[in-house]
Amino acid sequence: MKQSIFTIIENRPLSPKASRMRLQGDVSAITGPGQFVDLALDGFFLRRPFSVCDADSNSFTILYERAGQGTEAMTALPVGSKLDVLTGLGNTFDRTEAGDHPLLIAGGSGASPLYWLARLLRAEGKNVTVILGFSSKEEVFYEEEFRALGCEVLVTTEDGSYGIPGFVTAAMDRPCSYFYVCGSKLMLREVCRRAETSGQLSMAQRLGCGFGVCMGCTCQTVSGGKRLCKDGPVLRKEEVLWDD
């Protein structure tokens, strides 16, 4: 983990709800897809956590959706603004079990950590299918970006205005050696129930510190309590205990 000051070099809308932000600074603590960063915002006590969408030698990207006052305020930050960021938080997706044809499933900004994962899996020569789920056609983003990586991309919309009608599970009939999923808790649960293979999920939760000390995000697993910010956010399907 590292705390340092980053400069916003891009902050632009991708859809009515979603935006992309790129920040430049010391990225040495960021080691792989699945990890997250924690941004300090003026006027808000707690930091805001976001999965890293991609990183290079001196910057990283996040995709975020306006979900409350914090993310609303983020959309107004101009290029050149400085942000205090904790980087290198949480664990990473394990690619060793991906097999030849991994399936990546995202709900909305859940696409963020899966983009970097898809890029690495493609570089390893895997056939990657990506399912991107949105509520409607105008909310769709990152379809072309995943396609540009050489992934097969399926889009689902809940209202049927674009792509396959329904939830992401409506597109889960593809050949699949393993799956990776990031989205709402309800979506994670449904995907895990439908999936016939093993897989990994990135679990979002309200965090306190983001680095494992406050116990604000501990969830029960078959292997005991796990701090989602430190022992997660990536969990294996087999270890999750769903509430119901």
């Binding site: 006590f45 707690l46 309200r206 306190g208 116990m215 604000g216 995000c217 501990t218 969830c219 309590g225």
Partner: peptide, 20 residues
Amino acid sequence: RMGNPLPRIAEGRGGMLNSV
């Protein structure tokens, strides 16, 4: 002790709430 169910963290102006 495993503590309370999630969510256990909320925010307020100038502070935070926990129910760990």
